[in-house]
Design a protein around this nucleic acid. Structure first.
Length: 495
RNA sequence: GGGUCGUUAACUCAGCCGGUAGAGUAUCUGCCUUUUAAGCAGAGAGUCGCGCGUUCGAGCCGCGCACGACCCA
């Protein structure tokens, strides 16, 4: 501790020295600075080395990112949200006393600068300083400028550092915000209404996943962080809101990976008097538009793999995908025993009681999923694995459902909604019977949801899109932790 | 949960066959009024993730643990 704090000690001593000279280390009087990106272009007309004495005075504020000091002058760069600009300080301009104080400033300090624009001899627009203000003294050294901060653990644990020194990180999160803003715009423009439904639910439903449990003291009851908003959004369809969406967090008490964070952001939207076919068209339009808006093209590369998001997208039934993409013999799918044989051959362990629908889905996940690079809608999911989806009119063993895969990953899941309360009750019951032994999944029947359906829910279609995975795709991020500002990690041990 | 790899100065990284710990950047001192990975001269800076063991001697070998990354379930 003593020895490693050497640099910290030096910084504190400098700060104290400044304070003793009467410098406020944390001032708040330098307000309303201009955005660096906005004043930079105004330096353009100035010729090299010219100092425009009559010109406008500009005010900027930000963090010192680099410093080159000379005996009686210095250059440094200041970074704000919008960009960076070079600052030139001369002893003769700001005065000997001020310059002496300035020499105790460090990289990392947050400062305010006033001065006139000029261009250096290599043509960089810079501010010739008239006034310097210390806004916040930094007591810790920033990571090195050339290599930046690459240690992923530090980048995740101390995201603020990552954001200060790695411009790509900043861009990724700016894009994330933009993507979510555009999704809202897209849905609002089409008459969808944004709503908020409970994050704490007495009965966690709408998906099959392990929930987080919490307790409400005054109510004296356990609550669960939601694993999906689905059942509440459909209650709103019953209530007469015909187009609704929600963008918010879901929580799943399961393992972490490059594609799973315990809390993640989900878009769910529901539309009355529509089918899953309508949602395929909508999804195709929305995602390809998002890509064009955010990346400038519908053709992009994800981790060096080319992906073409230009519509139309391929649409296959699960059986077609198994045959065409998974290389399964078509005749085999007609024979239940043959399917189970294949499952065993592939080394897949099925839960007791699992039917042929579950078996097919497992085969699909093993043989097909990772091969779906360009966007592909997979339809005709078995009823057995789709407890909330409407049965297909011609073939009740499958549902009117699709999942969207891009770069081998599930991006969206949608279906024509089941609105027959009798069928719904049976399927809930069946689901509970199958998972009755797994206490962590909390298979509780949502009776109020069934009651809502008994009042009558319009025919409808609904969809969920994993925002984090979509952002990963559009920002070429390899891990979900790269698109979540503060991903969960185990607690730090040291310090 | 299993496997592989990683953890050395504030940051980025070397460290041979086991023999008293290295570089660049950053920091400090001096010089330096157009630099931009500024320059020149000098200096300081380490619980080698933690613990136990083997050894005359461990950053290095063995075992255990922690944290992280990737792959698998």
């Amino acid at each position: 501790m003593e020895t490693t704090s050497n640099l910290l000690k030096q910084r504190r001593e400098k700060a104290e020295a400044l304070a003793q000279e009467g410098v406020k280390l944390f001032s708040n009087t330098f307000t309303a600075p201009q955005a660096i990106a906005e004043i930079l272009p105004q330096g353009e007309p100035l010729s090299a080395e010219s100092h425009d004495e009559s010109g406008t005075t500009y005010r900027i504020a930000g963090r010192i990112m680099s410093m080159r000091k000379f005996g009686k002058a210095a250059f440094f760069h200041v970074q704000d949200t919008s960009g960076r600009i070079q600052i030139y300080v001369r002893r003769d301009t700001i005065g000997t006393e001020n310059f002496a104080l300035f020499k105790k400033w460090d990289v990392g300090d947050i400062v305010g600068v006033e001065g006139k624009l000029f261009k250096t001899k290599v043509g960089e627009t810079s501010i010739d300083t008239r006034t310097l203000v210390m806004i916040s003294k930094s007591l810790r050294p920033l990571p090195e400028k050339f290599h930046g901060l690459t240690d992923v653990e530090t980048r995740y644990r101390q995201r603020y550092l990552d954001l200060i020194v790695n411009p790509e990180t900043k861009e990724t999160f700016q894009k994330r915000v933009e993507i979510i803003r555009l999704i809202r715009e897209f849905l609002n423009n089409r008459g969808y209404m944004e709503v908020e439904t409970p994050m704490m639910q007495p009965v966690p439903g709408g998906a099959t996943a392990k929930p987080f449990k919490t307790h409400h003291n005054a109510l004296g009851m356990d609550l669960f962080l939601r694993i999906a908003p689905e059942l509440y959004l459909k209650r709103l369809l019953v209530g007469g809101f015909e187009k609704v969406f929600e963008i918010n967090r879901n929580f799943r008490n399961e393992g972490l990976s490059t594609r799973h964070n315990p809390e993640f952001t989900m878009l769910e939207f529901y539309q009355a008097y529509a089918t899953y076919h309508d949602l395929m068209d909508l999804t195709e339009e929305m995602v390809s538009w998002l890509a064009a808006e955010v990346t400038g093209s519908m053709e992009l590369t994800y981790q060096d793999i080319p992906v073409n998001l230009a519509p139309p997208w391929r649409r296959l039934t699960m059986d077609e995908a198994l045959v065409q993409v998974g290389g399964v013999d078509a005749s085999l799918l007609e024979n239940e025993a043959a399917i189970f044989n294949l499952v065993e051959e592939k080394g897949i362990q099925l839960q007791p009681g699992a039917g042929v629908g579950k078996a097919k889905t497992e085969l699909f996940e093993l043989l097909v999923e990772e091969k779906l690079i360009d966007p592909t809608f997979i339809t005709s999911y078995p009823t057995e694995v789709s407890p909330l989806a409407r049965r297909n009119e011609e073939d009740p063993s499958v549902t009117d459902r699709f999942e969207l895969f891009i770069t081998g990953r599930e991006i969206a899941n949608a279906f024509s909604e089941l609105n027959d309360p009798v069928d719904q009750l049976q399927r809930f019951q069946q689901q509970i019977d199958q998972r009755g032994d797994d206490e962590e999944i909390h298979p509780v029947l949502d009776q109020d949801y069934v009651r809502a359906l008994e009042y009558g829910m319009p025919s409808a279609a609904g969809e969920g899109i994993g925002i984090d995975r979509l952002v990963m795709l559009l920002t070429d991020s390899p891990s979900i932790r790269d698109v979540i500002l503060f991903p969960h990690l185990k607690p730090e041990v040291k310090e």
